[in-house]
């Protein structure tokens, strides 16, 4: 693809040679404060509008409802860091949920269902990896195609889109605890999202693999010339993303006691929005796990607050879209002024 568009983002790199660059690099840019300030504004606004908003029990509800979106956003973060985009993350969630629910319904023990669900999701990642790195299709189109095929596959697997329901009696406790249980006072999905986010953040930030991945995302040709295994690293990014999304799917299956086709696709657009809102936290516009989690919190707190003040669903969508647009435009304007 074109070499022209890969200019180093932000301008941190060329500044390195100048004296005083060290100080320049440390200075916070106004655009970086945008996401935290939006988060604070949402908290203050709804804290004033509804007395139930800032209560412990409500915040627990917020955390619980953000867990699955957080995992989807973490998955998206990995792929975007590798210079791609994954529109099929919702399909991976769905297939993870389908695999787990179908295996539980067929009477398998919980761990087989979990592994089976994760494997189903990994298939999505493997297809993406082959299409993007071996065949050389652009990630947007490749994962879009996988999204379409995956949607069809769900309909075919479920006989035209019939949901799978797991009745309370036939579901083993070991599986039900995944969606409804508690670990160390946290809901299991919240704990799983935290662990998943920590692991991915550590792997991205602290390993050679993570550094090669980041380099491959910023400068694919340069990474290849420098001897980095750009192709296989990017391929593994799609696999890791599918695995994390599959985990979200397994939790979803347990939480909702079954599998409803296409339920994972609700997460795709919010995950993309959260990841890029999070990217404004970095001075170079790079995505990060922490940033994505901030983005997820912005979306979840907004939904929760609007529910509490009893805004109708149509207006909620409008407000979410406007907030996303406003944050992105403001970040672009601030970044422009700083340049």
């Amino acid at each position: 693809m074109t070499a022209t568009t890969e200019r180093p983002a932000g301008g941190a790199a060329p500044a390195g040679a100048r004296p005083g660059a060290e100080r320049h690099r440390k200075r916070l840019r106004p655009a970086q404060l945008l996401a935290p300030l939006s988060l604070a504004a949402i908290v203050v606004t709804f804290g004033v509008l509804s007395e139930n908003f800032l209560t412990g029990s409500n915040l627990q509800v917020v955390l619980a409802s953000s867990a699955l979106l957080a995992l989807a956003a973490v998955a998206m973060t990995v792929v975007v860091r590798a210079g791609g985009i994954d529109l099929s993350v919702g399909v991976a969630v769905d297939l993870g949920a389908y695999g787990a629910a179908a295996l539980v319904a067929a009477g398998y023990v919980p761990w087989v269902a979990v592994v089976g669900g994760l494997l189903c999701a990994l298939v999505v990642g493997a297809v993406n990896a082959v299409l993007v790195t071996v065949v050389g299709i652009r990630p947007f189109l490749a994962t879009l195609a996988v999204w379409l095929i995956g949607s069809s596959a769900q309909q075919l697997l479920t006989g035209g889109g019939a949901p799978i329901y797991l009745s309370r009696g036939e579901t083993p406790d070991g599986f039900r605890v995944l969606g409804g249980g508690q670990v160390l006072g946290l809901d299991v999905p919240v704990a799983a999202a935290l662990v998943g986010a920590l692991v991915v953040a550590a792997v991205l930030g602290g390993t050679v693999w993570g550094r090669v991945l980041t380099a491959a995302g910023d400068q694919p040709s340069a990474t290849r010339i420098a001897g980095g295994a750009a192709g296989s690293t990017v391929a593994s990014a799609y696999l890791l993303a599918a695995l994390v999304a599959g985990l979200a799917g397994v939790l979803l299956a347990s939480k909702s006691s079954g599998f409803v086709p296409f339920s994972g696709q609700l997460y795709v657009l919010d995950a993309i929005g959260a990841v890029f809102i999070g990217a404004t936290l970095s001075r170079t516009g790079r995505t990060s796990v922490v940033g994505s989690l901030v983005g997820v919190l912005i979306f979840t707190l907004l939904s929760n607050g609007m529910n509490l003040v009893a805004l109708s669903a149509f207006w909620q969508d409008l407000a979410r879209g406007l907030v996303l647009l406003a944050v992105l435009v403001a970040a672009a304007v601030l970044a422009r002024r700083a340049r």
């Binding site: 879209g321 435009v329 672009a332």
Partner: peptide, 14 residues
Amino acid sequence: LGVRPLLATLASGA
């Protein structure tokens, strides 16, 4: 203004 087209149009579409 510098928002990536993917995101700008995603948000305006929403």
